[in-house]
Amino acid sequence: MAKKTNAVQPISSGPVALDATDRKLLSLLAEDSSRSYVELGNLLNLSPPAVHERVKRLKRDRVIVATQAKLDGCKVGRTLLTFVLVTTNGVASTKRLLALSSLPEVEEIHTVAGDSAVMLKVRPRDTEGLEELLARIESIEGVEATRSYIALSTFLERGPSPEL
């Protein structure tokens, strides 16, 4: 039996061969993932079973990694969209930051090139919540500094486009 691990892994492992129909299907699903296979088939000139097979393949190949509702942070009480850059003193310290993935206010964790090692996208409930989160980050062994950027307005927020 394979050992199950709870370790956080990078999301992507490289490109997958996609044809024009796959890309159009992905665009339609990214726009509205609640569309039925019948509706998608009509838009793509495919049968619903053919669409279903493509979706199954795209999920198996991890092109589609999840189907989820996109929530309005402000309407669910998470009003403070913030990007936090974290400087660490080494790879081990950077890996310790992955423990933050279990916190509900942490939406994304990225290792980055440049002056910082990690960039977090967080959405705490308010400034006090941000202050508590920053204190938690700064208490992690090997964290040297944090720099926060609070978003005032969001005009565009989306995932990658499958179109070339």
Rank of each mutant, 00 (worst) to 15 (best):
L26M: 02
V112M: 14
E138N: 12
P10M: 06
L156K: 14
V76E: 05
A99G: 10
M1S: 15
E39V: 14
S161F: 10
E132M: 10
I64L: 10
N89I: 12
N42L: 08
V84N: 10
A20K: 12
S148C: 12
A17S: 12
A135D: 12
S102K: 15
V76A: 02
I140G: 09
C74M: 11
V76M: 11
A17E: 14
A7Y: 03
P162G: 12
S36Y: 03
A20N: 10
A20V: 10
D115N: 13
A151T: 13
R57C: 01
L120F: 05
R62N: 06
V8F: 04
V91S: 09
L97M: 03
P104I: 00
Q9E: 08
S93P: 02
I150Q: 13
A92V: 10
E157F: 01
R123S: 09
V38N: 07
A66D: 14
D115Y: 11
V8S: 02
D61N: 12
S33Y: 08
E131F: 06
T79C: 07
H52R: 15
V86C: 03
K70R: 15
A135E: 13
S161K: 13
E108S: 07
L81P: 04
T87S: 12
D126Q: 02
G129W: 01
L164T: 06
S116W: 09
I140A: 09
I137P: 03
N89C: 09
M1Y: 12
H52Q: 15
L100W: 11
G129D: 01
H52K: 14
G114V: 06
T111R: 12
T82Y: 04
L28G: 08
P162A: 14
E157W: 01
L29S: 03
A99L: 07
F83H: 13
I137K: 05
R23K: 15
L97D: 02
A50N: 07
G90V: 04
V86N: 03
S47K: 06
P124G: 02
A135S: 14
D22I: 04
A69K: 15
G77R: 09
K70E: 15
E31T: 03
A30K: 14
E163A: 13
L98N: 11
V65C: 01
L25Q: 07
R96V: 04
M119E: 06
E107L: 11
R125L: 04
Y37I: 05
H52A: 15
G14Q: 08
P124M: 02
K3M: 07
G14W: 05
V106M: 06
L100A: 08
T79N: 09
L120G: 01
L40E: 02
N42G: 11
V86D: 04
V91D: 07
V76C: 03
L44D: 05
S33F: 06
I64T: 06
A145Q: 15
L80T: 07
T94I: 01
Y37A: 14
L28F: 10
S101L: 02
S148M: 11
H110V: 00
K4C: 08
D22W: 05
L103N: 00
E39Q: 15
N89K: 11
F83L: 12
S153W: 09
F155P: 00
F155K: 00
S33E: 03
R147G: 01
T146A: 03
K95M: 10
R96D: 05
